[in-house]
Amino acid sequence: MQRRQIWGLFFVLPTVIFFAIFFLYPIVSGLLFSLTDFTLLRPPEWVGLQNYADLLKDRLFLKSISVTLGFVLGTTVPVWILSLLAAKVFYQRFAGREILKVLFFAPVLPSLVVVAIVWRILMNPSGVMTTLLRPFTGLGEIDFFNNPTLSPISMILINDWTTIPFYMLIWLAGLTGIPLELRDAALVDGANRWQSFLRIELPLLRPTAVFVAAISTINAFQAFTLQYAISPGRGGPIDVNTTMGLLIWKYGFQFYRMGDASTVSVVLFALILIVTILQLGLSRGEQYSLE
């Protein structure tokens, strides 16, 4: 080997070895654990696909899939649309834009545990949210977190509050990358603003859209912290907030059923993979580029 090759390896090997130890090894061993009956207390025993067969009969697991899908739906499509609209607003030129953008962006900064604490208070049965909604509902008290219908919706709203400003920033970077001449040319040719948005901007935003869709979906499937910190009994009421992420934690670290927890992880991974591949397939079609 040449000296240059050795130096190349010298620079990359620490990272490669790190990921072999703390990424590749756990991924493979996780797959193997899912085929065993492992509780940390006694050595794992090979059970083949028994865990998977058991999960299909596990009511809590089946419920966690629908809970997760509901959360994914509520924290992706609405977030894409609202964050794009917000980006269109902050793309305009107006006095005071920068300071307002900073204020709008602030919800991205606090940790989800802080977010949970703050919204526990805002969504207290007789708290600020109830007061703000009173003109529409006329109710003196709304129990957001203990009501089985309102509770998952509250989780979605809180999550959207922290993520919309983040995706707004990504869209804004995409919008800023579109040359002004292109839009102006369309307007000169007689297109109205809406047509120019639909025909010029949106196709050019395709790479941004693919990025936003993929990241937000992967993040949504991993929902854990809000459900853990806010929902009554960690996942309640009546398990309407038990996402797959929360179930992994429950099985693995509350009940020490490591085999079952690994099995849920593998299923979650498979779900994310399928949805991501579907999204990439849908987003292919015609390719636009600025060249």
């Binding site: 703390f22 990424f23 690994s262 992880s265 593998v266 991974f269």
Partner: peptide, 25 residues
């Protein structure tokens, strides 16, 4: 090596949670 390092971005952390904990243990 590059594809391997890049692939770690695509895998959500929760998939690693249990086996990584057992490894650390």
């Amino acid at each position: 090596f590059f594809v391997f390092v890049l692939s770690t971005i695509m895998v959500p952390f929760q998939i690693l949670l249990v086996p990584l904990f057992i490894e650390i243990h």
